[in-house]
């Protein structure tokens, strides 16, 4: 039985494309939190978020045939998520009577900023949730001895001395483990980012694409 959890995205995507359903399910599991977080942000309610989530994976399913090795799966997924969110927003507006099919056909595709509320920046939200997801995945991979002090420090806001007392270890050990844990997370996420070549330069590309309506 392959250990899919240790496979890189590209191999999972390639195996999935070749007919390995379990590899596809491993991708779904790996990116479920990220995709659902974005869907929740753009869905009008939980039901809508769930529908967008399913639509993302259905669309990915249809399009995976065009996936090529080393395309960069996360960048690929990001494009799919973004297009589903825009489609959903478009449908919603049509349903609400703000935009007719005829209007879309005659005047070309509406700009993203026309479809989504002014304060929403899809591209920025995707990048932000993706990075948050990668950091939290890297934290979950840490051995307990690093993860525990790191979470107590960053998430619970406890001081080194309090953590030392709670975990019954010297304060210097706590300091070292927080530092090392953070460094391991940093290195792991950078490694993932470099596995996905199209992710590297996307910060400049991404920020500010979903602009405000005039």
């Amino acid at each position: 039985m392959p250990r899919y959890e240790r496979w890189i995205d590209d191999d999972l995507a390639l195996a999935f494309r070749a007919g390995d359903l379990a590899a596809g399910e491993a991708l779904l599991t790996r990116y479920a939190r990220f995709v659902y977080a974005v869907c929740s942000q753009f869905g009008v309610d939980d039901q809508d978020a769930g529908d967008i989530f399913s639509e993302v994976w259905l669309k990915l399913q249809r399009q995976i045939v065009s996936y090529e090795y080393r395309t960069g799966f996360r960048a690929y997924l990001r494009v799919v998520v973004k297009s589903v969110i825009i489609d959903q927003a478009r449908r919603r507006r049509r349903h609400d009577g703000h935009l007719s099919f005829d209007c879309a056909a005659e005047e070309g595709e509406p700009e993203l900023g026309e479809l989504l509320p002014a304060e929403v920046d899809v591209e920025q939200a995707l990048l932000d949730k993706e990075l948050l997801d990668l950091v939290q995945r890297a934290v979950r991979l840490l051995p307990d001895r690093f993860r525990e002090p790191l979470e107590l420090y960053y998430r619970d806001g406890l001081g080194h001395q309090t953590i030392a007392e709670r975990l019954q270890m010297p304060k210097n050990t706590v300091t070292t483990r927080i530092h090392r844990g953070r460094e391991q997370v940093r290195r792991q996420v950078l490694e993932w980012l470099h596995e996905d070549p199209r992710s590297i330069g996307n910060a400049e590309l991404g920020v500010g694409v979903g602009r405000a309506r005039p």
């Binding site: 939190r33 995709v35 977080a37 769930g50 989530f53 950091v135 790191l150 960053y154 998430r155 953070r182």
Partner: peptide
């Protein structure tokens, strides 16, 4: 990101 609340699973 380290200080943020965990993203919940769907």
């Amino acid at each position: 990101y380290l200080a943020a609340d965990p993203l919940p699973p769907p």
